[in-house]
Nucleic acid binder design. Structure first.
Lengths: 243, 243
DNA sequence: CGATATTTTGATCGGTCTCAATTTGAGTGG
DNA sequence: CCACTCAAATTGAGACCGATCAAAATATCG
């Protein structure tokens, strides 16, 4: 992907939006309508139900996207990782359909829906790219639905851990969990006690090693984890696979 | 929506695709690349994992879309209803990510991905419409994830029944279930016995009335159902809301 | 070092699954 | 029209998984 002279600081939005539609005329004042955001853990990008006006693109860091039932029960939908859109689903609506919260320090850009629509209209190629992105998200959501509906708690945790591997090729078995036990439980439709218990059990079985804080863990037996997770070869939880 | 002279038999694909992008030049030989399908209950449109080449649009009838774990456990993703795309998620992939099976008599059109991509490239308006459709599906998938992750079996069934109401405005409280108990359980991540028990319980509590076959039911106490389903006002399960 | 949040672990309860039997309904052919 | 067959739905009894409530242990941070 080429550099983008319009954006001296190499904004990701530029790389993704402008450079992907170089063929067409890039709208000049684009950088003017892009806002940059710097967030600390626990900061909220936006709340579910809130009137929506902007979509975000993560430059770095990690966010969790959650939606709640009227009585307050929370369910994690996915982790928002670098180079992913956040809040895109509200494009044709007037409200955000989930809450986005930073769980690590986060750098993000944002853009008004209105401007995004304008850009999309001018660039069929970008529109096609967006369709591809949405299709991929839909497939990941479907995998999540399957996992929540059919998997046991152990299977959910095993497959979840496998998706948190930093890289496919790199046999790096060290994972720094960006999530607390509560967050993890929320993502998996479980309670924090269940998550803690199962991680302890895996640790005892020498499948993983849990470092003191409970946040850093090593995968000792990837084969075993894969077996516990129904041998899902593809990415079953929608966390990674930004590609 | 205007009639479409290109298609004498008023194919839904024409209405949706061609007429929605009338402004641009409609590709002439479109009807040539559209296939029509007539399916009986239990017929398969396509299998999960199968090489994908065509996307479908339902004219009439009802299909269930399911995805399975490697060991065979099945999870329903959504019902495919009239005027909805089916198999669209495979557009940029080579394989169908779920199985589509007719559960009523079904009329459908289909189109090669290749041709669809061609049409999309030529019609930015259609591409925008597709982005809207995918966004809506994504929001419904997220609601399903929330419901599977957080709701009790009773809550799932109550909210599911509410989404099967034929119409919002029409106070028609009669539902002809297109699904067997097994199918329903599959959609809700439950067992068929649990579904049957809870429906019986609701029937005893005079919240619904179950007609003999178990397939026709009346909603007697819509308020009560809504309360049992966490008072979800929006459509929490991704079945209806075609519009 | 002390205060607070997070994690771990334990004991118990309840909801849902599992296995099993029975009932009911739909379809078939005599 | 009625027996027969087969599939679907209902109902029951018991087991098990995960939730809940409660307490202790361990990190993190000022």
């Amino acid at each position: 992907m080429k550099n983008c002279t319009d954006c001296p600081d190499k904004c990701l939005f530029c790389e993704t939006l402008l450079c992907s539609c170089q063929a067409s005329k890039p709208p000049r004042p684009l950088q003017a309508v892009i806002q940059k955001h710097s967030l600390a853990p626990k900061d909220i990008l936006f709340h579910e139900g809130e009137p929506a006006s902007r979509l975000f693109l993560l430059s770095s860091g990690c966010t969790k996207l959650t939606t709640a039932l009227p009585d307050g029960r929370n369910q994690g939908l996915r982790l928002g990782m670098a180079r992913q859109f956040i809040g895109f689903e509200g494009l044709n609506e007037q409200r955000y359909s989930y809450t986005a919260e930073a769980i690590t320090p986060v750098q993000a850009c944002s853009l008004r829906y209105q401007d995004m629509l304008h850009i999309l209209e001018q660039s069929p190629q970008l529109a096609m790219a967006v369709i591809g992105i949405l299709n991929r998200e839909l497939r990941r959501s479907n995998a999540t639905i399957r996992n929540l509906g059919q998997m046991s708690s152990t299977e959910r945790i095993a497959s979840f851990l496998l998706t948190l591997r930093p890289s496919e090729s790199d046999p790096q078995d060290e994972i720094l969990l960006p999530l607390s036990r509560t967050d993890m439980a929320e993502m998996l439709g479980l309670t924090l006690e269940t998550v803690s218990r199962i991680l302890s059990r895996m640790s005892h079985a020498n499948i993983i090693r849990l470092q003191p804080g409970g946040r850093l863990l090593h995968i000792l037996d990837q084969e075993g984890l894969a077996r516990m997770s129904c041998d899902l070869d593809d990415s079953p939880w929608p966390q990674l696979a930004a590609s």
